[in-house]
């Protein structure tokens, strides 16, 4: 029988790559923000306790405010992670300034096919969103992670408030009799992340980004036919005409689509898109594709 230490001996020589995404400065910035929130909550709790102690018949303490959802996203960072749930898993994740979209496929399908999507909107950016207390049209649904949810009348099956004033929705192709239940389970698998950088196997020449800019990146989750993509448009609105350049599984750069209004202006940008050196080695993928 081998000794335990012998069994794991091959892992003793493991050394991480010298290149790293760990950023001490970012840890300090995020840590400061958390400390401020924590200190604010502590101070608030102290004030509430004092007031309650002094005026037990006058006030009922209100719950501490929860952090508001972001008003816009960094297109180079992922804001949520999506687990496998209700027979679905994420195929790809596309970022954008005002919404992130995760395409869904059925886990059981041997070849991934888009059968739904999760759309995560920035605060105030859900289509038609109004002021505080607003909710999409529909019937109340069970909470998602303790937050309000709605069975949608249109535009999907379920929407939920994933951050204060920030809504997300799930759309699924009708395939089963219990689609609502499945949509709810999919929504529960969506977890906000702590600002995770994306990495892509493509770069674009920054000097070409004049009439159009990089408005999003696409990263593969499971079973997609490409290894990642860059999305260009003349503005950040999700409905703006765009051009998408992807790196296919065979490591060829491919123009997936160009909307007509961009035909004349995106050519130089598209031509400047290149794969990173040895893209099969994901250690070479980059967190910032603008070179």
């Amino acid at each position: 029988m081998s000794e335990p230490s012998d069994l794991l001996a091959p892992l003793r020589a493991v050394e991480p790559d010298e290149r790293t995404t760990v950023d001490i400065g970012r840890a300090i910035r995020t840590g400061k923000r958390r400390k401020r929130i924590r200190n604010g909550l502590t101070a608030l709790a102290a004030v509430v306790l004092t007031v309650v102690a002094l005026s037990p018949f006058l006030v009922r303490p209100s719950p501490p405010p929860e952090p508001a959802g972001p008003a816009e996203f960094d297109v180079l960072r992922q804001v949520v992670r999506v687990g496998s749930a209700a027979g679905y898993h994420g195929m790809s994740y596309q970022t954008g300034r005002y919404q992130h979209t995760i395409l869904l496929a059925r886990a059981a399908d041997p070849v991934a096919q888009e059968l739904g999507a999760i759309t995560v909107h920035a605060r105030g950016r859900y289509p038609g969103q109004g002021g505080p207390g607003w909710a999409p049209h529909g019937q109340p649904a069970p909470d998602v992670h303790g937050r309000r949810a709605v069975w949608l009348d249109a535009g999907g099956l379920l929407a939920w408030e994933w951050g204060d004033g920030a809504w997300a929705s799930v759309r699924l192709e009708p395939s089963f009799p219990d689609m609502r239940d499945r949509a709810h389970r999919v929504a529960q698998s969506v977890v906000p992340t702590a600002d995770t950088p994306v990495r892509v196997p493509l770069t674009v020449d920054g000097s070409t980004l004049r009439q159009v800019s990089l408005v999003g990146v696409r990263i593969p989750l499971r079973g997609t036919g490409d290894l990642g993509g860059l999305v260009f448009a003349s503005n950040d609105e999700p409905t703006a005409p765009n051009a998408v350049v992807v790196l296919e599984e065979d490591l060829a750069v491919h123009v997936e689509s160009v909307d007509a209004p961009l035909m004349g202006v995106a050519g130089e940008v598209i031509d400047s898109v290149e794969a990173v050196s040895d893209p099969a080695n994901r250690d070479n993928w980059v967190a910032n594709p603008v070179r």
Partner: peptide, 30 residues
């Protein structure tokens, strides 16, 4: 449930080009 999601694929999805090291194959199996 982070473990259920791979952002850029696992070793089974993408080839990994390793630096030449002794016993890399054993290490990967372990």
């Amino acid at each position: 449930r982070w473990g259920l999601v791979r952002l850029v694929g696992g070793s089974g999805e993408l080839p990994q080009v390793e630096q030449a090291q002794p016993d890399v194959e054993t290490r990967e199996v372990v």
